[in-house]
């Protein structure tokens, strides 16, 4: 039981990396989403999982209760969630547009900005 937190986070990151390395555009972008979730959890856990009370002061009190959670990682993760969301939405739309234009969902087929193909998959490089 105690190992399940780091295990789940590690699994999340590993799955995200695996999906991101895929040649399929859609899987790649969703890999970013999974990887992002994993990294957010990592950041959150680095603030130590333990105290369970939200870092909100009671009415009338002028300090946080003793058992309150660490507010700093929460603030960071909150920012990361929103930024990650914006990135993903843009990534999805971009991937859709690329797939639509190239008539292919293979990331390796997107070569419009690469030099013309040389030997095999290698681009031609200007010889000295």
């Amino acid at each position: 039981m105690s190992l399940i937190v780091p295990l789940a986070i590690a699994l999340c990151v590993a799955a995200g990396v695996y999906l991101t390395l895929s040649r399929d555009l859609f899987r790649m972008v969703l890999g970013l989403a999974v990887l992002g979730s994993g990294v957010n959890l990592l950041l959150f856990a680095s603030g130590r999982l333990g105290p369970l009370a939200p870092p909100i002061m009671e009415a009338g009190a002028d300090a946080l209760a003793a058992g309150a959670a660490n507010p700093l990682p929460q603030a960071l993760v909150l920012t990361a969630i929103v930024i990650g969301f914006a990135l993903l939405c843009f990534g999805l739309v971009l991937a859709a547009r690329l797939a639509n234009m190239a008539r292919s969902e293979d990331a390796d087929a997107l070569r419009a900005t690469e030099p013309p193909g040389g030997e095999g998959h290698k681009p031609a490089v200007l010889e000295p």
């Binding site: 999340c12 890999g31 979730s37």
Partner: peptide
Amino acid sequence: IAAGAVAAL
């Protein structure tokens, strides 16, 4: 979380 990650793979 774990189930989602494994399923996505």
